[in-house]
Amino acid sequence: MKSTGEHIKALLKEKKMTQKQLAELSGVTESALSHYIKGDRIPSGVTSVNVAYALSTTVNYILGKEDILDFSNIKRILEQNKSKMTNDEKAELIDLLFRKD
């Protein structure tokens, strides 16, 4: 199972975001964020929420817990992030939903 730091680091890379940008978006210091990524510290509840929101993910994912992604959770995540998505990303989701396996 990946650590909190590994999850944050992977999401930073995926979103092409710097630690400084994430620190600003989540309201934590760069130093604290660095400690989370190194695994020296685990973010508090409020900080976990802020980091997860800034990275467009869930607290469970940040903390390395299994996400329960039922319809209501998926819908909530999509609603929170639709303005950040490109038209190509939205089209990819639609294609995924209607693709026959």
Rank of each mutant, 00 (worst) to 15 (best):
M1W: 01
S3C: 06
S3R: 12
E6V: 06
K9W: 03
A10D: 15
L11F: 07
K16N: 12
M17A: 04
K20E: 09
K20G: 02
Q21D: 10
Q21W: 02
A23P: 03
S31M: 06
A32Q: 15
L33W: 11
S34I: 05
S34T: 13
S34A: 07
H35P: 03
Y36I: 01
Y36A: 08
I37F: 00
I37M: 10
D40Q: 08
D40S: 14
R41K: 09
T47I: 13
T47N: 15
V49Q: 15
N50C: 04
Y53T: 12
A54D: 00
A54T: 04
T57D: 00
T58Y: 10
V59W: 05
Y61V: 04
Y61L: 12
L63W: 08
L63T: 03
G64E: 10
G64V: 06
K65A: 14
D67V: 13
D67W: 04
I68A: 10
L69H: 03
L69T: 00
L69E: 04
L69K: 07
F71T: 08
S72R: 12
S72W: 00
I74M: 14
K75C: 03
K75V: 00
I77L: 15
E79P: 02
N81Y: 02
K82Y: 08
S83Y: 01
T86I: 01
N87T: 03
A91Q: 15
L93V: 04
D95F: 14
L96G: 06
L97P: 01
